[in-house]
Amino acid sequence: MIKFENITKIYELRSGQNPVVALQDVSFEVKEKEFVSIVGKSGVGKTTLFKLLLVQERPTQGKIFFMNQDVHQIRAKDLFNLRRRIGVVFQNYELFNKKTSYENIAYPMETIGANKDQIKRDVNEILQLVGLTDRAFNFPEELSEGEKQRVAIARALIHRPDVIVADEPTGNLDPANTYGIIKLLYKINEFGTTVILSTHDKGVVNNLEKRVITFEDGKIIRDEERGKFIL
């Protein structure tokens, strides 16, 4: 489904400092319906990996394939098609501050021209799934951190993407909310959506008993089917 092929990403610094190697010859594949955790300390290149997949940045070397298509060959104006198939969840939620939970979740559906009834039905369904029916008309500033992340997950899920990419989704959450979010991602995966989770939280990964890819200094040092977070 997703294939990273010899990916290297080097950031050239303007101030004459040495370039930063974020990823070095990284190759791995994610199959459909898989739950993959990408682990490693902060700054090992986990976020860079996602940015490259979403074509927010270009690799210095290598190729990334999504459904056999080289994502960096897609023209800028057609990228929305790729992004509609990948649901993204961020550590800092990235919600529209001026939209309610309902509107935040409905937005991806509006972009694909769904009608009002369809949007209402699907958003209410997903609000139920993430347990936020009673927070539908609250703005992000009126929600707790855990609720914000649930809205972000709901928004990532609403247009039924093939894959959910979650970049440190529990980074700002307390243990109770962390557990809730991971349980939710687990449930989503059980429904058949591929999940790629990046985290530096040992507890989260060790309880999942799913595939774990461990990064260190921009390289993969371990890739295990039922892995643990060992560093």
Binding site: L54, Q56, K77, L79, F80, N81, R83, R84, V88, E94, L95, F96, Y107, P108, E110, T111, I112, R155, A156, H159
Partner: peptide, 16 residues
Amino acid sequence: RKEIKIMRLVGATNFM
């Protein structure tokens, strides 16, 4: 800035 970035990442077209 932030709003446009989110719009792009959730798959909005330039027109939208």
